[in-house]
């Protein structure tokens, strides 16, 4: 993190940075629909398109947090609606495990969020975006401790 701040306190001018992984068939299209409907929402999220929420490797979420994201949003199709039948269920399973692990690492639960948003639910997308930004703004910047040292030494040990 480049900014210096007091952990846990609201920082003036703090703009949460959110990485969003949206599935190609539902949530990405909901975001497109929000656009064509000219809905307005907070500009904090950066969307990365994946074909299915099942493609979201938990490491993507970890990497985003390590790179300085204050929150990660995963958007998929509603249960039963997955374009690939069950990818969203796989995403849900990983999400639960990941959230438990991140909580142990000191990352607040509200920083990662999984939402089912169908292609027709532009209003839900807008609301989720706004809500998440507000919640993370209240939490303040994330401060995931990432060790600076590389893993090379560790690798040598394991070899």
């Amino acid at each position: 993190m480049s900014e210096t701040h007091d952990a846990g306190q609201q920082v003036d001018g703090f703009e949460p940075r959110i990485v969003a992984f949206f599935c190609n068939w539902c949530t990405y299209l909901a975001a497109d629909l929000a656009g064509t409907s000219r809905m307005k929402y907070a500009p904090n999220a950066r969307v990365i398109r994946v074909m299915c929420s099942g493609r979201v490797d938990p490491q993507f979420v970890m990497e985003a947090l390590a790179q300085g994201a204050d929150g990660v949003l995963i958007g998929g199709c509603h249960p039963g609606d997955c374009h690939y039948q069950s990818g969203n269920y796989k995403a849900l399973r990983r999400y639960h495990l990941l959230r438990r692990m991140l909580t142990d690492l000191g990352v607040e639960e509200k920083r990662i969020r999984l939402e089912w948003i169908s292609a027709a639910e532009a209003d839900k997308l807008r609301d989720v975006m706004n809500e998440m930004v507000a919640e993370i703004r209240a939490l303040g910047p994330a401060h995931l401790e990432v060790p600076d040292e590389s893993f090379e030494e560790l690798e040598e040990v394991t070899v």
Binding site: G35, T36, R38, K40, V47, R126
Partner: peptide, 14 residues
Amino acid sequence: REHDSWVHKDMAAA
């Protein structure tokens, strides 16, 4: 466009 200019108002943020 759909994900940015159409959904935000603030030019600097967009």
